[in-house]
Nucleic acid binder design. Structure first.
Lengths: 200, 200
DNA sequence: GGTTACATGTAACTAGTTACATGATTAG
DNA sequence: CTAATCATGTAACTAGTTACATGTAACC
């Protein structure tokens, strides 16, 4: 699942591992300071041809673009701070199509859906809507299951837990429905079935 | 974490693996049909002395232990249904105290807290309250983090995701506060600070 | 006589955490 | 000079899933 997160972030621009980790931390709560997962993942992604890497010497860090440089160190050389040579990763074409696949997978996994949502802007609108509907179907089936066999326990803590689950499900469904409604509203120019062919 | 779930269920009564799995499925949504995790876990729990097991022949299913496997009953009439010899597990004294430990651990893990709540009735009231407060503190710190550095993204999907997170956090905190209030209401005989010494 | 439910297990894999090793640069 | 931050990586561990192997017995 890290694959999805990493490819999604790299799709926006080249990054090195350390920076990726920081973005992961802020963008998608959960994938925190786990270099022990990130670096092996990057190595694997490269072996499979989904990303390519380039060693960049510390001196070359300098801001050509958006990054906010340290203003304090004007007196020092143009060198931006960087302890050692970094490996900057770049998503390949194969990586991009793999990302599109990952974005459309299952949706029965809470954590994965989180990531899919975080990067669903890279999907074509119809696929994005399909993803939302898939997730919705999953939540509805969970709700149906919960209703079919309700809590048999008389323990107040267990009951409270299950009540919270129900409320959370309802809340999530309402939220998803808003997402879906917005999605439909933003592209009303598709009254008929899609006539494009998708190869992925 | 399966340890917690298994010991919690066994504390209520002896069970065999297959039955444990069914209870896991219904009682605590999530731990479904995963025998591949359950059986190794049971073996481990037994090796460490937290549970003991006893082989029970299919014929003796009904009750009244005194397992006598040597005697093979040819009669099929009153036999309860059971495909093969089952291993019925029983929690030991060591297992019970380990369970109490597990019930008081961290609380920064969503899934674990779920299990802790499902079996917190086995905790003494003050410990149970402490568990709730611990969880509450965790949620509050999450909320503080989210407020300190808000979403920097302009992507509508990412923003929607983070808004849902916030709402969920608030909802969870309100729910926890109700739990805590109920807990205090049910034992008002402790108005001052605790003067007991805690050893665990 | 085939499907389903009961029952225990192993092997391989997915997914991630914690702790450690290493070393450069920079701010106080 | 020392702590923090930057930067990459490995090893060992935690936690669980999926698929398979094996067999009994009840249900229709």
């Amino acid at each position: 699942m890290l694959d999805l997160a990493v490819l999604g972030l790299l799709k926006e621009g080249d990054l090195h591992g350390y920076e990726l980790n920081k973005r992961l931390k802020s963008l998608v709560g959960g994938y925190s300071t786990s270099f022990g997962a990130l670096y092996p993942a990057l190595a694997r992604l490269e072996r499979r041809g989904w990303v390519s890497s380039m060693a960049v010497a510390p001196e070359l860090v300098v801001d050509d673009e958006t990054a906010e440089p340290a203003r304090k160190n004007r007196r020092r050389s143009t060198k931006s701070k960087s302890g050692r040579t970094r490996k900057v990763y770049h998503i390949t074409e194969a990586g991009e199509s793999y990302l599109l696949e990952l974005l459309q997978e299952d949706a029965n996994n809470e954590r994965r859906f989180r990531l899919q949502l975080a990067f669903c802007r890279f999907l074509p609108p119809d696929r994005r809507l399909a993803l939302f509907e898939l997730r919705r179907a999953h939540l509805v089936s969970l709700q149906a299951m919960a209703r079919r066999d309700p809590v048999q326990s008389t323990d107040p803590y267990v009951r409270s837990l299950f009540e919270r689950d129900q409320e959370r499900l309802e809340h999530d469904l309402a939220w998803l429905d808003r997402l879906i409604a917005d999605e439909r509203a933003n592209r009303p120019q598709e009254p008929k079935t899609d006539d494009r062919h998708n190869s992925i």
